[in-house]
Design a protein around this nucleic acid. Structure first.
Lengths: 184, 184
DNA sequence: CCTATCCGAGACTATAAGTCTCGTTATATA
DNA sequence: TATATAACGAGACTTATAGTCTCGGATAGG
């Protein structure tokens, strides 16, 4: 019994987190800032989330969960290109994703939910494409597909974190070509 | 004029940073802790370094600078394998490197020195191997070598940060094989 | 209508970064 | 050799933020 969780409050907190992210960037987002903007008490945040990173993760997933690309175009080349193009396109989340990755490194308690709710789901989507390609005989049999997944997300995250090269659509095509070359 | 910088103090601070890293791990390293262990004042640290990350970067470079592998075995395959095996072998620095990368994401002022003094120097070493391979005709002419560098360090950093797969010597061999396949 | 639980608000505590001050010590230069 | 200058260890101080606790009030199920 007792009062039930307020959906309005949950929604306001997630929206406030997104707004704070856009306005100040991940490093400058604070729990006080989110609470103030949402018109919520800090205790309401800490009652349902473990830390600022958990709130931001929920907010980002809320935006991005529906947009995990899982193309099925008939060939590995087309699927991979569609997957990478779609993934590389989410540029506005760059700062938030980099922040979450950094937070997961510095706070082991956050690493597990981040891996399981974000990273591994995206790995699974890519793995599905690769498995389909293998079933069609498009991938050399001695290739370790987990390594291929590491390569693809490795490049993605490296560029996201280091800001060394752009995450453009062209970059997606180029990576597709390189990976396909390796899989022959 | 005036008193000159104390080499003994500099040395004690870097050694203390390494000791604190090994003992507590990057997230738990504090400037107070380094100062106390080194028998130094905090001001002495802040006089010469901008932040805890700058101290740790200096300490890590001090250990690792001499060990950037730059093999020259005559073939790209051998060079790449030697480079990756040597790089993957530095496992004890894993926690410190992950921490520095995370810090560079959350603190833009640290990102520049980290890139220039650590990341880019390692990129340059790998790039040298690849350029030699290209000059020998071992790499298809339409391959973008900067993308290849991103792929190699992407996998490395992804595994370092996510702790998804081990950084073993076998992993080095496997990655070498995959990359060589793509370069044909 | 009763009681448990949520709610917003905000005071409070804990931790760590980074600054400032002080008395002391080393060194380049006059 | 004397002196001005800057670094030194020590530690108090400030600030920022995470996270906890407490309150009176609201809202649900039983």
């Amino acid at each position: 019994m007792g009062r039930t969780r307020s959906e309005a409050s949950r929604r306001a907190i997630l929206d406030a987190a997104i707004a704070e992210l856009r306005e100040h960037g991940y490093p400058a987002v604070t729990v006080d800032g989110i609470a103030a903007r949402a018109g919520a008490g800090k205790q309401t945040i800490y009652r349902w989330w473990g830390s600022k990173a958990d709130v931001v993760l929920d907010a980002v997933l809320d935006l991005a969960e529906a947009t995990i690309a899982l193309p099925d175009e008939g060939t590995l080349a087309a699927d991979l290109d569609a997957f990478l193009t779609a993934t590389f396109r989410q540029r506005d989340q760059r700062d938030a994703l980099a922040g979450l990755m950094a937070h997961s490194v510095l706070d082991p308690a956050f690493a597990t939910p981040f891996r399981e709710r974000f990273l591994f789901r995206r790995r699974a989507a890519l793995r599905t494409l690769l498995d389909r390609g293998r079933a069609r005989g498009e991938i050399a049999p001695d290739i370790d597909l987990e390594l291929v997944v590491d390569v693809v997300f490795g490049v993605l995250w490296y560029r996201l974190l280091v800001e060394n090269a752009p995450l453009s659509e062209d970059a997606g095509h180029e990576l597709t070509d390189l990976v396909l070359r390796a899989l022959r």
